[in-house]
Amino acid sequence: MSLAIQITLNGESRAIELDDPRITLLDLLRERLELTGTKKGCDRGQCGACTVLVDGRRVNACLTLAASLEGASVETIEGVADGPELHPVQQAFIDHDGFQCGFCTPGQIMSAIGLLREARVHGDPERVREQMSGNLCRCGAYAGIVEAVLDAERLTARESERGVA
C-alpha cells in the first residue's frame, strides 16, 4: 500500500510518499528525510525527546502517525535557526547551560518555542517548570532550562516591544 501526503516541512512544501502506513512522524523525519535532530528517547510519548511543532503546537512525533498529517505544517529543530543566527531560545540554552549530554535538547528547545508561542508563562518560573515537564532530562539540566526559557521570553518580549519580528 502506498500513501502520499503533502506537508509543509520547515517552511517548505513537500510531497511525501509513505512506503508503510505504520510510519510515525518521528521515523519519517529520522529514517527517511535525513532530519535526525529530532531524537527518539522512548518512542512512547513518555520523554519528549521527539518534540516537534505540528501546526505551530508542540507534539510528540513518536505518537503521530505520518499518514494523518496530510496538509499539516511541521517544524523541527533543523528549521529553527536563521542560517548561522541562532533562535533566541537556542542561544539561551547555551547561555544558561540548559543541557549536558544534549540528547533531549532539540526536544526541549522545540517544546520551549511552543511554550513561548502559547504565551502563558508570564515570567513565572513555576509555570515554566510545569509546562516543560513533558521533556525529561536525565542529566538534570532543569534549572538551566527554566532560566533559558525565562530569558528567551524576556528577550522576545523586548524585541516585540521594539517592533522587531
Partner: peptide
Amino acid sequence: GASPQLRNA
C-alpha cells in the same frame, strides 16, 4: 493530565 505535548495531540 499528561504533558503539554500530549495535551496538544
